[in-house]
Write a protein that binds this DNA or RNA. Structure first.
Lengths: 199, 199, 199, 199
DNA sequence: AATGAATGAGTGTTCATTCAT
DNA sequence: AATGAATGAACACTCATTCAT
């Protein structure tokens, strides 16, 4: 692997990155269905055929964008989890972190939800991603329950799923559907979350 | 208006009804995007072109099916609301009623959510429908708050929106995405709902 | 089935016929691979999409043209067979009839041979068609053999296949590849055919 | 021309040979139309773009493979011709030799026939190759005729063309189209050939 | 010579909608 | 009202060939 090869790879990598950038723009502006490969290439400043040098098809770029986005989201959430205060503070921080992260990717999230609606593969990804969030919250609730902070009549799994759903769908409602909301609403959500599990 | 005319209208009405039936079947089986007018007509036992005698376009039949479905859902929810027990019982009944009604229409609901994802008009309908549910729950919570059953630090609107979202999206998760759930889960949901607003 | 319906069908039938005519022209001029649906429609004076009202795809029109052609060829050959003279006269007549019929369809035959070369379905048709000719000649030779006109050391099947191949491929060579030939050559072919089987 | 240059040339020669090998494989497996340059390079273990260092285009490699094959075939046939027995023995040997040689190259022959069907250049090659065979057989028949072994009413050219066609197309039928045949069939073919020219 | 990324022309097919009867 | 043939716009994907290193 000489310098030339690295250069070649570097060029390819740049093209690929341009395409990803272009694809993200187009998907965000038009949604998956109205996104045209030709426009993606135009945005990337790349010839039409080059798209297929780097991606198998339209689904493939999209999947890659979504994977990247979900990895980022997970990273953010994991970073949050490290600090260990009381449950209420952790829930508050987690909710804020999630909503902030969601907002940043809101336009791509919108398309993700759209595609999950008709593509079996993307639905899989969607369910898997939610599974991860459910698990994290379930573990936390179970821990608090074992510590005596959460009543015994709460089923950690059901609560985790329901409350994660509440937070997650609220993010969609606010940032995708554009329902108006204020900053204090996050605190209200956290309060509802905490009270729901008896904290 | 002679007998022939009446007959004609009756015949037209029957054709229209057949088309609605056929459309529902096809939308439910294939989703909006893969539903073909030709298949709708086949199912309805009606000639290809007759579709446009009764509906302006594909969106129009769909909108009509959705309106019908939402009207039905609202009727069910209204019927529930009449009986007046304590808040917990009312919430329990409302949740059960909603989930049962949702399940019945789950396949069309799935398509509704799909279309709301890319059709501005259907998104409007979607938001309006949720608005109605939010309002109902907000009014209830506000009432309980005024009656001293719900703490003052709960914002009725935010709580209504968040908890309706929780219930609504849980229905989607269960009946559209097919997440496994048991009968007792409804009670857990109700418990979370009630505790969240301090009941 | 009222008059109107017949008229409708008649119009469709006309469109279909135009498309078949256009397709034949284009296939003959360009071969299968370079034949474009759009040009077929242009020739037929019909809108692009109308092609698919009448044919499933490019292969389908082609198959229909070939079937029609082969039916015609078989009809001609069957008509020849009726007259019953001596073997030599019959062979002469059959050869002449075949070559004349082949010449008439030479340009489509060329495309048939082409497509049989890469399309499994068309290869099937090709083999089936030859099978019919082989069988006819085998029966004839076997009959003459039983009548003592053909020596016993001739295997009717092998002879039929080989000699039908000779005639058939000569037709291709003359009328598709354009090898020069004179009228008397048919008599030479017949002489070779007859002598080959000992007549 | 220094050592390095020689090495370079040797390397280039090896690459070229690999590409020819790869091309033959791919053409035989997929036919001309579905053969992809990329797959040829993969088989050859050579980089994608290197193909064009050695061949002008897809047609060029193919032409080279066909030339090689035809040269081989001709060599075999020439070797046969040397031994001089009676006509029947010579015809028998030639037929056997041809069929054996054809069978060995059958898969490439199939593609040759395919391409001759749509490529004017390859059709030229095809006609030229047949011309050589016709000529050889014509010369032989003419010789036998002059020696009084073949009747005067046989036209050597027409007979040569027709009978070479019979043998050649039988080879195609057997080894490309896969029509079943037994070993004794060759003798039948030879018998038909001989009788046809009055031997 | 070798590499492999970049290029972009080319087309069959689908299907919602229109319209003549 | 009903029929069903006609319409035509729209678009992803392939792959031979070029070209910068």
């Amino acid at each position: 692997m000489c310098v030339t090869e690295v250069k070649r790879q570097a060029r390819a990598e740049r093209t690929r990155a341009s395409l990803l950038r272009g694809a993200r723009e187009v998907f965000e502006e038009r949604g998956f269905l109205d996104a045209k490969i030709s426009e993606i290439c135009d945005r990337a400043g790349v010839a039409y055929g080059s798209f297929y040098t780097h991606f198998a098809d339209k689904d493939a770029v999209f999947a890659e964008l979504i994977d990247e986005m979900l990895r980022g989201l997970l990273t953010v959430m994991r970073a949050e989890a490290l600090n260990g205060d009381g449950p209420e503070a952790r829930i508050a921080r987690a909710n804020r972190a999630y909503l902030r992260a969601y907002e940043k990717s809101a336009r791509l999230m919108a398309v993700f939800e759209q595609v999950a609606t008709f593509s079996p593969a993307m639905r899989e990804t969607y369910l898997r991603a939610w599974g991860v969030f459910y698990d994290r919250q379930e573990r936390a609730i179970r821990g608090w329950q074992e510590a005596g902070l959460v009543p015994a009549d709460i089923d950690p799994r059901t609560a985790a799923v329901a409350l994660a759903t509440m937070i997650g769908r609220t993010a969609y409602t606010w940032f995708v559907l554009g329902r108006p909301h204020e900053d204090g609403d996050v605190d209200q959500l956290t309060r509802l979350y905490c009270r729901a599990i008896g904290i």
